[in-house]
C-alpha cells in the first residue's frame, strides 16, 4: 500500500499552511506513524525554520529531482520525534525547477517507506500549487475566517474539483471565538455554508503558535496549548478516529469578569 499523500494548500498566503504542515506531521509522528513533510514552496523555503531543522540542510527537493543527490541524503531526520522526516525546498531556485510529474515520482519513491507524506504547498494557484497537488491522495484547504482568505479558498476548491482531486476538506485556522460571539468574525458555520466542503478541524487563534515558531518547536511537541490540541485532534481525524470538535465557546460567559480583570491590570 504505502503512504497516504496529503497536500496542505490555501490559495491565499499567510493563513497557516506551513504551521499546519509542521504540526500535523509532528502530531502524526507522535502517534507512531512514519511521516515525511515536504516543502514544495521552491524559492521561499520556510518549513525548515518552522520545524526547527534549518541548521541541518545539505540537500533539497530540487537536488533530488535533478539527481544531484539520493533521496536518503535529502531526508532530514527530526531528532526529537521518532519517524519524523523533512525534505526542504530549494531556496535559490524557482517554481519552474520542478514539474508535477517530478512530485509524483518523488512521492512514489517515498511511499513504501512512510505512512504519511505531507506536502506544504506554496500560496497561489500557479505551477507551484499544481506541483503540490499532483501526487495528493487527499487535499486539505486551510483558511482563516476572513473574506479574502475564504474567497481564495473557494477558488482552490473549484480548481481541485476540476482536476478530479476532490473533495477537499477544510481546516479553519485562527478562529477567535470572542469576536464571533460579538458578531465581528465569520463563524465556522458561515464558512462551511459558503464553501460547502467537509470540515476537518478548527484551530483557535493562539499566541503559543508565534512562540513555538520563534523557537522552532512545533506547538504539538510542547505544552497542551489550545492550538496544539486542535492540531492533535486533526491528526487523529486523518487517522480515521472520530474526535469531536473542540469546545471553543467557554470564554464569553465569563467575559465580564475577565474585562474587569483586564481593567485592573491596565489601571
Amino acid at each position: 500500500m504505502g503512504a497516504t499523500v496529503i497536500t496542505i494548500t490555501s490559495g491565499k498566503g499567510g493563513v497557516g499552511k506551513t504551521t499546519a504542515t509542521a504540526n500535523l506531521s509532528a502530531a502524526l509522528a507522535m502517534k507512531g506513524k512514519r511521516v515525511v513533510a515536504i516543502d514544495a514552496d521552491i524559492g521561499l523555503r520556510n518549513l525548515d525554520v518552522v520545524m526547527g531543522l534549518e541548521n541541518r540542510i545539505v540537500y533539497d527537493l530540487v537536488n533530488v529531482v535533478e539527481g544531484a543527490c539520493r533521496m536518503r541524503q535529502a531526508l532530514i531526520k527530526d531528532k526529537r520525534i521518532e519517524n519524523l522526516y523533512m525534505i526542504p525546498a530549494a531556496q535559490s531556485r524557482d517554481k519552474s525547477a520542478i514539474r508535477p510529474q517530478d512530485m509524483i515520482d518523488v512521492c512514489d519513491q517515498l511511499r513504501p517507506e512512510f505512512d504519511f507524506i505531507l506536502i506544504d504547498s506554496p500560496a497561489g494557484i500557479e505551477q507551484g500549487f499544481r506541483n503540490a497537488i499532483a501526487p495528493a491522495d487527499r487535499i486539505c484547504i486551510i483558511t482563516t475566517p476572513e473574506v479574502s482568505a475564504v474567497r481564495d479558498a473557494d477558488r482552490v476548491v473549484g480548481l481541485i474539483e476540476a482536476e478530479g482531486k476532490g473533495p477537499a476538506s477544510l481546516i479553519l485556522n485562527r478562529l477567535r471565538p470572542q469576536m464571533v460571539h460579538r458578531g465581528d468574525m465569520l463563524d465556522t458555520a458561515d464558512v462551511l455554508d459558503v464553501l460547502a466542503i467537509e470540515l476537518l478541524g478548527i484551530v483557535p487563534e493562539d499566541e503559543d503558535i508565534i512562540v513555538s515558531t520563534n523557537r522552532g518547536i512545533p506547538v504539538v511537541m510542547e505544552n497542551k496549548s489550545r492550538a496544539g490540541q486542535a492540531f492533535c485532534n486533526i491528526a487523529a481525524r486523518l487517522l480515521g478516529e472520530d474526535v469531536p470538535l473542540m469546545d471553543l465557546e467557554e470564554k464569553p460567559s465569563s467575559s465580564w469578569l475577565s474585562k474587569i480583570a483586564g481593567l485592573v491590570r491596565r489601571g
Binding site: V147, V150, R151, D184, M185, V194
Partner: peptide, 17 residues
C-alpha cells in the same frame, strides 16, 4: 454586524467568481 456583512459580501462575490 460585520460578521453578517462579511457573509453576504462573500456569498455574492463567490457566486460570481
Amino acid at each position: 454586524t460585520s460578521r453578517e456583512v462579511a457573509k453576504s459580501r462573500l456569498q455574492l462575490v463567490l457566486v460570481h467568481d
